[in-house]
Design a protein around this nucleic acid. Structure first.
Lengths: 238, 238
DNA sequence: TTCCCCTTTTGGACTAGTCCAGCCCCATCA
DNA sequence: TGATGGGGCTGGACTAGTCCAAAAGGGGAA
């Protein structure tokens, strides 16, 4: 029975993992510079970066574009069956939510959006792009597409608020049936720059198609979550 | 307005993506050798590999350990609310499922398993490890942990079959409430070698805790899916 | 025709650098 | 005190290789 020597990358991962598990590197703290670490582990930056990349895939560390590597904070629980909005969900778990509006406009719908919202070809839709934070960290990029027929003049309101609330208070529209689609994939360029991460980093894409109390499709959202920011949990009754 | 020159990695990604989209590289087909590709794109293997890594994260291509890169087949839909087992789910979507048993034994439960199954400390559990394929491709590594009180002698049966069926036909036990937890993360070593992929590649970890018709916790499974093999879709009524 | 061995190809892992641009901090000046 | 402008540090991106072991493929023997 020969003991196989673990590869350098594995050793680095283990070492860092242990430090994190033991709390020597508290969550949110910055790791030393790549050059420092590669020196510490007596290896090249390329190898060191591969190790960090693996820890990133595991969700143990994350990187901020041009700023360095940090220890990932705890994941937030996301339950698609419980109909609460981002702010409430995050606050309930003792974390601090924040939202910023990146853009909001009326635009021609793409073919894909027309199909999802069941609109005729060449329709216009409201597009609202937002970035959301948990404890100050950018974790979510969302594109909302609203059927303009149901929400005239919605761009005039403060879109930092939860759209759910706006729908209810200003238009008397409430969510009914919802359809979720979750796909582990990578961030596209737009989302990556908004979240200030390197393009191509792993993400969870959640697509929601929302209907109102009468079963009409009112909007859909395209959410790109940092893959290490959430864990989805579903309690199925029966 | 200056046009920024895209990085080499992005260009390679785009080029390959286009070839795939246009069907010039059909799903399941093998890409040329890394050296060939790096020559083709006039770059180094390191850079080429980074590009492939990004496409892998997107779920467009995947790699088989020591065998090369392949175009990813279509994702299979996974609906946690519909209680069908792997075989049925895959077959329903016109794909070919297969299962192999890696190991099956009675073993002391880890602390974590004790907690999840609500067993007293130092209990024994049945552990069944299986690997599953779709159209011949290894996509899922599962560890089942069964409360032995409910399934005496289950190791005697053919464990290639669906456990759901076995539970029903041999023990009169049916699934009731289920709890799901989905976390985008990386494969651990055990799962990676079973699925014949490089350790640390991205994955979706789905944990299920199953109760029977009387609400008793009967087993739990730890599933590691290739991240590009499924998309989770949930239809929420109300 | 089938099986086995040997060679070649290929991916896996890693080294040792370079060049560039954005971030950060500190010192300087108004 | 507060704005500003350098310069050093740091991550991002990339080049140009090496060594090794496993897989694939081909040819010859049974």
């Amino acid at each position: 029975m020969r003991e196989e020597a673990p590869r350098a990358v594995t050793l680095i991962c283990r070492a860092l993992q242990e430090q994190i598990d033991r709390g020597l590197l508290p969550s949110g703290s910055k790791l030393p510079a790549e050059r420092k670490l590669s020196e510490l582990f007596d290896t090249t930056r390329i190898t060191l970066r591969e190790a960090l990349g693996q820890l990133e895939a595991q969700g143990l560390v994350y990187r901020e574009e041009r700023r360095g590597w940090f220890v990932s904070p705890q994941r937030v629980a996301y339950n698609p069956l419980v109909r609460t909005h981002f702010h409430a969900m995050v606050a309930e778990q003792g974390r601090v939510p924040a939202t910023e509006v990146l853009s909001a406009r009326l635009m021609p719908a793409t073919a894909q959006i027309c199909q999802v919202l069941e609109l005729p070809a060449l329709s216009s839709v409201y597009q609202v792009c937002r970035a959301r934070r948990i404890d100050g960290r950018l974790v979510l990029y969302v594109e909302h597409y609203l059927n303009p027929a149901y929400f005239p003049g919605i761009l005039e309101f403060d879109l930092t608020r939860s759209l759910t609330d706006l729908y209810a208070s200003e238009y008397g529209i409430h969510y009914g049936r919802v359809r979720f689609d979750m796909v582990p994939t990578a961030l596209h360029t737009e989302a990556a720059t908004s979240l200030k991460v390197s393009p191509g980093s792993p993400a969870l894409r959640i697509t929601r198609v929302n209907r109102d109390q009468h079963g009409r499709i009112i909007d859909c959202d395209l959410e790109f979550w940092r893959h290490d920011a959430i864990h989805v949990s579903v309690e199925v009754p029966e």
